[in-house]
């Protein structure tokens, strides 16, 4: 009799264990929830938003929104250079240059857009429109000698921009390094 009861309990437990992979907690996320938390842009341009911008508009936006902390091209305020030097490093390869400017170091142009949209201006991030951020991206790329003054930046053109240091990168651990594989 007792054994019989125990078996029933064991069967019930077995059933719930089989279901353990089912999602227990949390609410389903709607597409709206997901869209609100904008997707991060991939180097191939996936998830770049609509809108477009140009260098002239970017220059104006930069002067108004960014020069509290960053130098304009040609300016040399040392405090602003320490916060973040955005232009004026001639060395196009990163190795001998610890300044790591967009033109000398960054391997992908999409990162410029994604980063300044999420983080800049530092005191009011995400306060501009996607087109504004495309313009600022165009301006930063132009002043770093990466694109021409007339180039328009949008979700089609931006991923195609060739960065000077694109081939300078190697990946340390593309796959699980053997010595770090979990031992069980």
């Amino acid at each position: 009799m007792y054994l019989h009861k125990f078996l029933i309990i064991a069967v019930l437990m077995g059933a719930s264990l089989a279901n353990a992979q089912q999602s227990r907690f949390g609410a389903p996320a709607t597409q709206e929830d997901i869209d609100k938390s904008f997707w991060t842009v991939f180097p191939d341009g996936e998830f770049l938003p609509d809108g477009e911008g140009n260098v002239a508009a970017g220059r104006e936006l930069f002067e108004y929104n960014c020069t509290l902390c960053h130098n304009m091209p040609g300016e040399n305020d040392p405090v602003k250079d320490e916060i973040g030097k955005l232009f004026g490093v001639d060395d196009k390869r990163g190795r001998t240059n610890l300044q790591q400017t967009i033109g000398s170091y960054w391997p992908y142009p999409t990162t410029v857009f994604d980063y300044i949209r999420r983080a800049m201006p530092l005191i009011a991030p995400m306060s501009l429109t996607n087109s504004d951020y495309y313009s600022l991206t165009a301006y930063l790329l132009y002043e770093n000698g990466v694109i021409g003054e007339d180039e328009i930046m949008n979700k089609d053109t931006l991923p195609k921009v060739q960065m000077p240091n694109r081939d300078g990168f190697i990946n340390a651990y593309p796959e699980v390094p053997e010595k770090y594989k979990a031992k069980d």
């Binding site: 190795r95 170091y105 240091n165 990168f169 190697i170 990946n171 651990y173 593309p174």
Partner: peptide, 11 residues
């Protein structure tokens, strides 16, 4: 930055 003019990402 690494020797040989390379930069190592994902260290």
């Amino acid at each position: 930055p690494r020797p040989n003019d390379k930069i190592r990402a994902f260290s």
